[in-house]
């Protein structure tokens, strides 16, 4: 039973990072009905920015983290403005293609500038805590704390602030929102900024827990998308739930089946959901225009 508890906690740790990544994905999809393939790459860039600031630039970890989030938010806004906005009225496949191309370009840029080798944050020696049968390192505790803090912040934003309500309005009906006087472009830019900042957070946390490589962007994209689909398209809280579930299933699967297939688990979940219940756990069946 101790193993199961440890696996569960490990699942929560990984799942928390996936959930953070999934938030931005879900918000963008909700607002624009557009799958931003480059989201994971943006998370990866965030991780590398923090790496450069902290490991190469000597800036303390917390400012590096926050600065990375801010810069990545800016990146997200730029990408939206330059590559996605012009295509908003075009066929959706055009946006999908562009987002894939952007993701490749981002992955490649990082590879060119910082190399393809595996990097690590090399954080100072970590203490380990024990809670019951479960062991947690300091970093892992920080990851869980950060994940929950950000998620709570998101809830607060969406429920109580004007910006948050306008984001929900845009996700509900972009045209009506504009008719009501909401500046659609501005709110969408905010969505990308917030989503990208959280993606950066996810990337940094993943980088702290595992390591950094340019290909991590792709994995984050897939897992975030699986989380979004599992949770129910357009439902941000569903995406969070989906992220945690994937993290847990991954860890359980890696232990009880085989570690080799760990990364494939997200794909399998994704495909299963799309075929069994496209609307996901919390989504409305009418919204799933899968076929």
């Amino acid at each position: 039973m101790g193993i199961a508890a440890q696996l569960l906690v490990n699942g929560l740790i990984a799942g928390g990072t996936y959930a953070l990544a999934a938030i931005g994905y879900s918000m963008v999809y909700g607002a624009l009905k557009f799958i931003n393939f480059a989201h994971g790459s943006i998370a990866m860039v965030g991780a590398y920015i923090a790496f450069v600031l902290f490991s190469l630039g000597g800036i303390p970890i917390i400012p590096a983290f926050l600065l990375s989030m801010a810069l990545t938010a800016l990146l997200g806004v730029l990408v939206e403005r330059l590559a996605y906005r012009p295509l908003r009225a075009s066929p959706k496949l055009a946006s999908l293609t562009t987002s894939v191309a952007v993701s490749f370009a981002l992955d490649a840029s990082v590879m060119m500038l910082l190399g393809a080798e595996i990097r690590s944050f090399r954080l100072p020696m970590q203490r380990t805590f024990q809670i019951g049968p479960v062991y947690l390192t300091l970093v892992q505790t920080v990851i869980i704390a950060c994940s929950f803090a950000f998620m709570f912040g998101l809830y607060f934003l969406l429920t109580f602030t004007k910006l948050g309500k306008s984001i929900r309005a845009i996700a509900d009906d972009l045209l009506l929102a504009e008719i009501s006087g909401i500046n659609g472009n501005l709110v969408i830019a905010a969505v990308f900024a917030i989503g990208s900042a959280l993606a950066a957070a996810a990337g940094v946390l993943i980088g702290m827990e595992t390591n950094l490589q340019p290909t991590m962007g792709f994995m984050i994209t897939v897992k975030a998308f699986a989380a979004v689909v599992l949770g129910g398209l357009g439902n941000v809280y569903g995406a969070i739930l989906g992220g945690f579930i994937i993290g847990i299933v991954e860890n359980l699967g890696a232990w009880y089946i085989s570690p080799v297939w760990k990364d494939s688990i997200a794909y399998v979940i994704l495909i299963l959901v799309l075929f069994v219940r496209p609307a996901g756990l919390l989504g409305k069946p009418e919204d799933a225009t899968v076929v």
Binding site: K162, K165, S166, R168, A169, A171, D172, D173, L176, A177, S180, G181, I182
Partner: peptide, 15 residues
């Protein structure tokens, strides 16, 4: 806005 509350709908009207 179907997913917003009645009150929030009105709030959006005066955004």
């Amino acid at each position: 806005f179907a997913s917003l509350t009645v009150q929030e709908n009105l709030e959006m009207g005066a955004f």
